[in-house]
Nucleic acid binder design. Sequence first.
DNA 1: ATTAGCACTCTCATCATGAGAGTGCTAATT
DNA 2: AATTAGCACTCTCATGATGAGAGTGCTAAT
Lengths: 344, 344
Amino acid sequence: MSQLSDRQKIILSLVVHEHTRTAQPVGSKSLIDQYNLRISSATVRNEMNMLEEMGFLRQPHTSAGRVPTEEGYRFFVGNLVQHTSLPSATRNTIAHQFYQSRKGLDHWLPLAASVLANQSQAVSIVTAPHSENITFKHLELIATRGNQVLLVLVLVGGEIQQQILTFDSIHSQEQLSQLAQQVNHICENRSVEQIKALTPVNNPNLKLVLEAVVDQLSLANKLVTGELYLDGLSNILSEPEFTDLQADSSPLRLLEERPLLDDLISRTVLSEDIGGVRVLIGGEGTWQELQNCTVVLTRYGIPDQFSGTLGVLGPMRMPYGQTISVVRYVGELMSDLVIENLID
Amino acid sequence: MSQLSDRQKIILSLVVHEHTRTAQPVGSKSLIDQYNLRISSATVRNEMNMLEEMGFLRQPHTSAGRVPTEEGYRFFVGNLVQHTSLPSATRNTIAHQFYQSRKGLDHWLPLAASVLANQSQAVSIVTAPHSENITFKHLELIATRGNQVLLVLVLVGGEIQQQILTFDSIHSQEQLSQLAQQVNHICENRSVEQIKALTPVNNPNLKLVLEAVVDQLSLANKLVTGELYLDGLSNILSEPEFTDLQADSSPLRLLEERPLLDDLISRTVLSEDIGGVRVLIGGEGTWQELQNCTVVLTRYGIPDQFSGTLGVLGPMRMPYGQTISVVRYVGELMSDLVIENLID
DNA sequence: ATTAGCACTCTCATCATGAGAGTGCTAATT
DNA sequence: AATTAGCACTCTCATGATGAGAGTGCTAAT
């Protein structure tokens, strides 16, 4: 790829910046006016022409200003964006909110979504962290009405699964506790495969419970991701990019249809990348729904053990420096919180 | 209120029906063409004039067709809508989906949201059912790393709350189980108030756990509603009513800001109404955000004990008969499921 | 009581017009 | 050799005029 001169880099940056601000094509004259450049509009026009030939800018119509192309944004994000760290006032405000809220993932996840949405003025996406190696931690059986029993299964990592079991006959809480203890003894810290491989048992109740445990563990294994928190939908609906939405190729489809989003997440951001922020600009040829959008994602938690994804989806025209900083910071915060409160 | 003649009722119904279909003002000529009426357009015009004077119809412009007013819709829903029960094929399809899915509220709630959204082509709203009298059912303490202990609290009704406790020193699982059993003995089937009123205990660990239990129970009491499931957002975004959305008076605000929605629900649909469907047309003067919208809600579960809310939000111009039927049917289904699987 | 007939009104799509913003090119300037 | 002033040209967009279409209200006839 041909090199860009310093001046071309500046102009590209300014076009990106100005277009982010106004959502309009940027003309040579208005650019030098806005930023008090020492060069003439004619020079800017020549440079813009070059940038257009290189594929970084594009004209919506023959005699309109220029708009960055996807390639232009990619170059900008890859080479030009200034990675300013978040102002410490903002960091403090955010951290404060987390440490002031009630402890527990249940509270932190929606809070993270809310913070991301507000700071980025885009839609935030936060998935609950999820164990990569599902293992049994603890089981409890609780007597309810009649022969129905509530099974509560705690996984290593602290996730909880519940299910209602129907026994053949009525059992007392003491009997159930004893049964649970038996199961705990057998299964503690084991994976589905290990539990499946155990020698079959004869006791029909024990068998019933073990089958349910295996069921629940397999189910947890199958889920690519757990709960999902979104926030800030109204932020993007007012953006011009989203006003003429065709129901079928709208980015909203991605947010509403869980499998699509899981696919996007799993193909974009890998568990081992914790700390890194991925910026996906314009669907990259794979996601038609993201034509005019950018997704900024990061992974948080503990690599290869217990991690989730968080980030934002917004118009391609977004303040990249700030957005990337916020996503990174919230990711770090959530990683710390998860590590501090991990069950193992 | 002045009475309507049968013919006026028919014409009002047809205007509502036609406008629901086309989203356009309805003219006298097009009405008789569309429905093969035996009367002339002039007669229809006279009747429409009467209906307009009574406040049931309105003309967007001096010489356009008529559109139903809020009052018009209210009269229609109150007196004219045909309460056709859902076609049995549809009922079967829906019921089938519920009985085929995995058991458990976690699966039924999003399923209900999905069914409602698809059937009504509007946004569905489903809140998890919630105990009105929060009472202790069962406690479990689970040893984790170091002196951190996972507290799992099961409420009557089957809701589960969890919290991480930090003890002064490290305890074995046996010790913790014993402690939990003590607490279970003390608290079983009691409310927060009853537990608070107990004579203070000396054992510091027991005290710590009891305080946490009281904390969690109070928290559960405070929540007006639990988790919230939405689906079908894209359905309404494509409707003309929602295209020119002002960020601040858009119905979306209601869906995004939880307190607003809780307020709407608690003021609209009461716990004792289970079985009844409430139709709120155009905000009724209270909710500015619902100017062109209708909300159809019902309560499901067990009256005054364990109930949640479900329904849809759509444009005021909606197929009321069908929507009401679907909401009622899904509500009944969910009531049955909740009752069958209630823990007590 | 109903309806045919008609003048009138209002919207909407279409077209022409002109201001404004921007471009590319060429010749002059640094 | 790079930069810039100058200029003709292009394209959009807001504005206003025009006419077809749909609908109304009123009056007189049925």
